[in-house]
Design a protein around this nucleic acid. Structure first.
Lengths: 355, 355
DNA sequence: CTGTTAGCGCATTCAT
DNA sequence: ATGAATGCGCTAACAG
């Protein structure tokens, strides 16, 4: 019932080897023969058996893209960009030539699921793996991931990090594209300080995440440089990277310190929740309290007032990661590139009252 | 170099078949033997060869989830929910047992890429495929997709539609979960009519998409029932499902008919762009113009004013699709279920001026 | 409950 | 430029 290479070969009156060569395209075949084979393929509606092909060739055309939260456009934008570089445009025939199968795997931020997905991709002999977004900082987990990536690399899988800091021993990795979270966080808080803010609340992301830590460190670097020390812990609340957490954490912040004049959120989504909480408390943005985010997601410019934030070139970074995973671009020197973060000053930040 | 089943068998002093049975778990094996095998697996750091396994068993553990736009939370939420039902929680060992590999494929709304992905998944002998979101209505493409899905189903792949209308011949499909886009669209416009609006602009999605058509039909059903006919075409502007399109289309709408008192957007993201355009023209929401969306994405409640919209249970639908794809839930009668859409009235809609 | 045997469908040597 | 032969690593009968 199911059509195999041999069936195609028989119909085209050539050997199976020739059909294989035509399909894979990387071998000289006479034009007339190729013609005949392709016609047989179409006539029989033949579809290559991926597992058999992968087994014989010891490689597959699967490329995995791991994301922490697929419902978050931060990851969606990067993953989509990577996929466009990896998947190829197709030829419209639906026949599918040498395309890679670029797939997105959602870890939900869980270290276990991250490892499970890596194992599953290893099992499939994936051609490449792209890990996006911040890493969990638990040492045991980091060691496990490093070990897994090393094994993947040894088996010929290209490993690329995108929006994630380099591994301690970067050996296993083709390239690491890291966002300048620390620098962005610092410049954002410097902006608030320059407006005159002195009591700045910080709604941080989950603990033990590199992204959380780096953004917070940048914030505190700026505070320290301004001589504002001692209140950091009290003015920081941690929570997940979602709207709800931003809402709740901001209420908690206002409870701890009713005199805050600005709230910095771990990212734009959290900033949205923070803004809602501030308004629900009857306060105005930015007249009573300034609000700032991070990432500059598409909706941030449409917030009311428009959100001051730090722009990350998510699409460009994702596309570059995709090209690196395909070996279409040479890795940066040392395999590490830092991607700049740009401060976007908009309407949600202003000088504090009476300034 | 690479460890195989035979190596594990040798170390555990059993036959390869026994190792296979332990690993696949669906066959009686003595506890002590299982113990020995698992230890050998860990000792040797063995990882199953997926392609070989799939070839021999003629099935794979890959499940594909097709989405139109991975950067859009509408799809991210559904896909994430489906993945949680399919992927399994993992056991924390990173060893990966019988888990399926749930992967998301981003078509970018392109019919060609949709077909290419289906072919690629067919090639991999995917265990199941979930197609989410509206379909392109081009007859040639629909026929091609139907044919492809039939072949997939014949090869044992379970096909589930989520947020997409049933196929003409639903034979190939395990189940179709369709959103009540038409009913939701109708109730939304009825709400505006009941507030007193008579000149209602409509920012529609792209042409030839089922979602676009059904929502628009619901809108026009309501208009017709209210005796408002003749102006539909002039008060409708089509565009992609993104923020930018909402912005541009709304400006065009205001140009065509400065007296519109309400704008209905194809979805929440478009509504955000529409709101920005309205404000940039110096008009207030809802005092001068009411705005409404569709989907009730998480950010919509935080818009200022909060967005009136139609809630779709995206997470629940995605999870159900995932269970259906796994055969963990019995399909609805006839394989078709319509998922209700609930009107959410919030601050962005109000009676027109002078009403 | 466990071992033996025989392919799964293809890519790739080597020949020619 | 093409054909013939071999084996990739595993699962699934079939025995026992």
């Amino acid at each position: 019932m199911t059509v195999t290479l041999a069936d195609v070969a028989a119909r085209a009156r050539v050997s199976p080897a020739t059909v294989s060569r035509v399909l894979n395209g990387n071998y000289p075949v006479a034009a007339s023969t190729r013609e005949r084979v392709l016609r047989a393929v179409d006539d029989l509606d033949y579809v290559l058996n991926g597992p058999a092909s992968s087994l014989a060739a010891a490689t597959s055309d699967l490329v995995g893209i791991l994301v922490n939260d697929i419902a978050d456009p931060f990851f969606g934008i990067m993953a989509g960009a990577a996929q466009t570089e990896i998947g190829g445009p197709g030829d419209g025939s639906g026949r599918a030539g040498g395309e890679k199968l670029a797939v997105v795997c959602n870890t939900g931020g869980s270290p276990e699921r991250e490892l499970t997905y890596l194992t599953l991709l290893q099992r499939q002999r994936a051609a490449a793996v792209v890990l996006t977004g911040g890493a969990v900082e638990d040492p045991a987990h980091q060691a496990a991931v490093s070990a897994k990536l090393t094994k993947l690399a040894d088996a010929g899988t290209r490993v690329v990090l995108c929006g994630r800091p380099p591994l301690p021993d970067g050996e296993a990795v083709v390239a690491a594209l890291a966002f300048d979270n620390r620098g962005g966080g610092r410049r954002l808080t410097e902006h608030l300080l320059s407006l005159g803010h002195r009591r700045i609340g910080y709604v941080a992301g989950p603990l033990e995440r590199t992204t959380t830590r780096h953004r917070l460190e940048g914030h505190r670097d700026a505070l320290r440089a301004a001589g504002l020390v001692g209140d950091e812990e009290r003015l920081t609340v941690h929570g997940p990277y979602d709207r709800r957490s931003g809402y709740d954490a901001t209420l908690e912040l206002l409870r701890r310190e009713p005199e805050v004049t600005a709230v910095v959120a771990a990212n734009d989504t959290v900033a949205l929740g923070a803004s809602a909480a501030i308004r629900d408390r009857g306060l105005r943005i930015p007249e009573d309290i300034s609000v700032a985010g991070f990432d500059d997601l598409p909706f941030s410019v449409d917030a009311v007032p428009a959100l001051t934030t730090v722009r990350l070139p998510l699409f460009e970074a994702g596309a570059r990661a995709g090209r690196l995973a395909m070996g279409k671009e040479t890795p940066p020197p040392g395999g590490i590139a830092t991607i700049a973060a740009e401060l976007m000053v908009r309407g949600s930040t202003a000088p504090p009252r009476g300034q």
